[in-house]
C-alpha cells in the first residue's frame, strides 16, 4: 500500500475513534451531571496529557502510520479547540463566572497534564534506553 494512503487511512481510523470517544464521553458526563465538568474538558485535559506522553515516547523506530494514527488521528480529534471557542463565544453572559472557571480550568489543566505526560514519557524513554 502507498505510504501516504496508509498514513491517511490510519489517521481516518484514529479520528473516527477520537470523535466517537469524545462524544461518548460527553454523553456519559452529561448523565453524571457534575457541576462545571463536561466531556469536552475531560477529553481536552486527558488528551493533552496523552499527547505529551506519546510525543516523548514514540521515537523514529515507530512506524509513521501508527504514530500519525495515534497522535494526529485519535488524540488530535479526541481533543478540540472549536468547542472551547464556541463555549466562550456563545455562553450567555449570566454564566460568565462559571465560564471563566471552565476556560481557566481547561487551559491550566491542559498545560499541567501535558507537562506531566511529557515528563512521564521521557522517564519511560530514558529507562528504555538505559536497559
Amino acid at each position: 500500500m502507498n505510504h501516504n494512503v496508509r498514513v491517511g487511512a490510519a489517521i481516518a481510523v484514529g479520528a473516527v475513534l477520537g470523535a466517537l470517544g469524545r462524544e461518548a464521553l460527553n454523553v456519559m458526563m452529561m448523565s453524571l451531571a457534575l457541576p462545571g465538568i463536561d466531556g469536552v474538558i475531560v477529553a481536552n485535559i486527558a488528551g493533552a496529557g496523552a499527547l505529551g506522553f506519546a510525543t516523548a515516547t514514540l521515537g523514529p523506530t515507530t512506524p509513521e502510520w501508527f504514530r500519525q494514527g495515534l497522535t494526529t488521528g485519535f488524540l488530535g480529534t479526541f481533543t478540540t479547540l472549536s468547542a472551547l471557542s464556541g463555549f466562550i463565544a456563545f455562553t450567555p453572559s449570566d454564566f460568565a463566572s462559571e465560564l471563566w472557571v471552565y476556560v481557566a480550568g481547561s487551559i491550566a489543566g491542559g498545560v499541567v497534564v501535558a507537562w506531566a505526560g511529557a515528563r512521564a514519557g521521557e522517564a519511560v524513554r530514558d529507562s528504555r534506553h538505559a536497559s
Binding site: 481536552n44 496523552a50 488530535g76 480529534t77 479547540l81 501535558a114
Partner: peptide
C-alpha cells in the same frame, strides 16, 4: 472538532 485540536496546542 476533528479539524481543530487542543492537545497539540497544549504540547
Amino acid at each position: 472538532g476533528g479539524l481543530t485540536t487542543f492537545s497539540t496546542l497544549m504540547v
